[in-house]
Design a protein around this nucleic acid. Structure first.
Lengths: 247, 247
DNA sequence: CGAGAATTTGACAAGCTTCAAGTGCCGTGG
DNA sequence: CCACGGCACTTGAAGCTTGTCAAATTCTCG
């Protein structure tokens, strides 16, 4: 099968192959981006808002998050990244990074410099389309997150968020309908969902008491997946992960 | 000047040229996307969430907005589109549209079918990169909007939002530091900012009484641009509109 | 001029934040 | 091995921001 073996090399290749059938050239070009392997420890700030000429990173292992700080010290987490996600793509297309990125756990990444990616696109045009798709998928998640913050109550927001995370992790082969391991603190959740940590705690308690989800000791357990999905009005369509579209 | 004349053909060409220097081939390929010219009247729903095989549109004239509806009838407006913006790009990359798009005013667009854009990318690879940049810029705006909803008070949120809109319109040559014409209703603002229409009205009154901005009869006037910018903590860096980056 | 839409205002209620204090857990050093 | 310190989590009480409901006023357009 053409490219079949190579495509399983990494979470990112696997993810992109879900969208476009990549040729061997595409896959080799993509693989060349994995050269600069690096590790960061938990808490390391890999990109700082306003920084110039930053790198992008392909996340191989661990969790990270991108966020923005406000003048008053408040933080808004824009998204969490899990293996197979690209970090800081916007930062290399733009002159200056418009957000910061921090490792939540210890992580393993491949660093991608701006010229690398531009060359890769010139060398394998389909890759540009595939990355555009991946970026669009990220945007779709940000949009759904926006809806969370704008129009969903704290409880529904939390439910929706946990379900989305579960769905994303399923795609990379971590976690299932039962639940998943989750290194986030309640402060992370608060900063992502636009709530106070105190309220996050109350919401989690309520969801647990209702027998819907339990979030404890680094693990999320879906106690009643169906009822939770209904409460959240969760429609995973926007994740667009039902098999290749472009052949 | 190579491509100089063609590049002024349309708001989109102009916007993309701000990012990459496009060759004549790129510009001609881009121009070919303008073939299917269409008009829609105010209120027309051009894309409906869940719809399959939708088109994208390049907006030449007028305002549109993209939004999502919730089961309870609430609406969250994700973004407003002004001339030079691409509508529904995600919808053609994905199988099904993940959001709806509606014309706010009467509008003029060019319809772009999925194969058109894929061919254009194959034919003019730099265009793919340019569109990736445009998509990233859109995402940056959505991200900033996310911060609005998550961490800014209603008042700061409104201030920030109006300033961003003003900045975007400057780029297309409509509006300046004084203000701009704006066809939005307070309901639009409410649905965009995650507020109730009643509260939008209160916030606008307060901003007006403070001598900061006036929003009346389809026109936004920045009464005190400097003080408003400070209140909003507005940093237009994320719009990345300071001249070409890729030559 | 009339009708529907958009805006405006007031009163009250709800949801979430803030402040404050305490509990549980885990790694570190004596 | 145990005490200590720090961090995450938990809970209660009070207050503020924003939503909801209801009604009046003004605008817009045919």
């Amino acid at each position: 099968m053409k490219g079949g073996v190579l495509s399983l090399d990494s979470p990112l290749s696997r993810k992109l192959s879900v969208f476009v059938a990549l040729s061997d050239t595409d896959l080799e070009t993509l693989a060349s981006l994995y050269r600069r392997r690096r590790r960061f420890r938990s808490g390391h700030e890999m990109v700082h808002e306003g920084q110039k000429n930053t790198s992008a990173f392909i996340l191989a292992k661990g969790w990270a998050c991108s966020y923005k700080m406000l003048p008053d010290g408040a933080r808004q987490i824009v998204d969490f990244q899990v293996p197979g996600d690209i970090l800081g793509l916007r930062s290399i297309l733009f002159r200056t990074a418009d957000h910061s990125i921090e490792a939540i756990t210890g992580i393993e990444v491949s660093e991608v410099l701006a010229p690398d990616i531009m060359n890769a696109f010139a060398n394998a045009p389909r890759l540009a389309t595939a990355v555009l798709w991946a970026a669009s998928r990220d945007e779709a998640m940000v949009v759904e997150h926006l809806v969370d913050l704008g129009r969903r109550s704290a409880e529904v927001r939390m439910a929706h968020f946990l379900l989305e995370l579960g769905e994303r992790l399923k795609l990379v082969g971590v976690g299932d309908a039962k639940g998943f391991n989750c290194p986030l603190t309640q402060y992370h959740l608060a900063d992502a969902l636009g709530l106070s940590a105190v309220h996050v705690n109350r919401v989690l308690r309520h969801l647990r008491e209702e027998g819907l989800v339990t979030f404890r000791k680094g693990r999320v357990v879906f106690d009643d997946f169906a009822r939770l999905t209904e409460l959240a009005g969760f429609e995973p369509g926007y994740l667009d992960q039902d098999g290749p579209r472009l052949r």
